[in-house]
Amino acid sequence: MSRLATTILLFGFLLFILFWRLDEPSGPLSRTRMLMGTVVEIRVDDPEPERFRDAVTAAFDEMARIERLMSLHLAKSEVSRISRAGEPVEVSAETATVLRTALKVSVASDGAFNPGLGRLIRLWGFTDGEPRVPSKMEIEEALVGIGPESLTLEDGKLFKSDRSITIDLGGVAKGYAIDRAVEMLSAAGVKHASVNAGGDLRLLGDRDGTPWRIGIQHPRKKDAVLATLSVADRAVVTSGDYERFFEQAGRRYHHILDPYTGYPAERCQEVTVVADSAALADALATAAFVLGPEKGLELLQKTEKVEGLIVAADGQVVFTSGLQEIVQWP
């Protein structure tokens, strides 16, 4: 009898282990969707995350709406419409908000970030068509009249100094979509969440009482992390030359273009910016990447409530004074 009882108990125990392992709580609610040319993941941390399923769907829908409004690829989008316009055009309050952020950074960075770069980006084929290196003449042509003063926003109207200037909000629009998604989640009562659009992040609250640990991709080692940041309630955006690139005649050309030269910016490998909004962080990251380690760091340092880290072309790392408190090196 005792042998039989032992056997039965043993099997019962094995079954229990099996059930217990499979009955484990599902963890955070995590959903992905393809939006704005990248994979967007929204994650909600909550004891009962399933109750926010609709809020996550609504946040995704909001991002899709902004994509339709601000995409350069869709002829019907508002950004396409104002790009084609010759005269000063009325822009919606929403697009105006994004434009204002873009123009603010454009002025602050002395044109290193430029929302009027649409023509040049199209020329390189980074958004549509086969990527290729344009001729010097084509590039010079595309750069004519696109200084930081060429676009102005007044009374809800956009003034372009030249009809041919094409607007490309690029990362700023993506950042704005991330910000809106976070606002939607917050309004729905979500306390802890992250929105991750292809490595551009914004965090809502902390992660169960401790800050989120955000790894920064190492610009040259694919599997390594350069540093880890402890942040809560903020946006973290990284721009790197490894993100999107093509090769022609043995040379690598990446997607962050220098508005002064018309060629890919060469002073940095990677820039990470921590800010309150993903839209601002994105614009600043691009601007600092183009400006390089010295001027870029100056820009990040002088912008309020912004921290950042720059990896120069030679691999040297510089960062803002306030970053010291939140960064951990491996």
Partner: peptide, 28 residues
Amino acid sequence: ACVPNRLLVRVVSQDESGKEPGYDLLSR
């Protein structure tokens, strides 16, 4: 991710507790 073809390939770990990456999210 292959955005035009709407496909997403990802590697997931079977035992989550086994290997901690040291961060929650990766900024890249």
